[in-house]
Simulated assay, not measured.
Amino acid sequence: MKTIYNETYRQLIQVLVKARKDGGLTQQQIADKLDKPQSFIAKIEGFERKLDVLEYIEICTILGINAGDTINSVC
Rank of each mutant, 00 (worst) to 15 (best):
Q11C: 12
Q27L: 14
I44L: 12
I59M: 05
K18S: 12
N66P: 00
E55H: 10
P37L: 03
D69C: 10
D35L: 07
A19L: 09
K50I: 12
S73D: 08
A31M: 01
K18W: 05
I57Q: 11
A42W: 07
E7F: 12
Q27F: 06
K36I: 00
D32S: 07
R49Y: 13
I30A: 01
C75R: 09
D69E: 15
A42P: 12
V74Q: 03
E55D: 11
D69K: 14
A67M: 00
R20C: 07
M1E: 14
L34F: 05
C60M: 01
A42F: 01
K21Y: 05
T70N: 11
Y9Q: 05
T70R: 07
N72L: 13
G64P: 02
Q11R: 13
I62R: 06
G46Y: 01
V17E: 01
G24C: 01
V17L: 03
E48R: 15
G46N: 08
T8Y: 10
E7P: 15
T26R: 10
Y9F: 08
G68W: 09
D22G: 14
F40Y: 13
Q27I: 12
E58A: 06
L54N: 14
L51P: 04
L63A: 00
T26Q: 06
A19C: 12
R20F: 07
N72V: 08
D32K: 04
K33M: 08
F47V: 07
G24M: 08
M1I: 11
V15K: 15
S39H: 08
M1V: 13
Y5R: 14
Q38V: 03
Q27W: 08
L16F: 10
R49V: 11
K43Q: 13
D35E: 05
T61Q: 12
D22S: 14
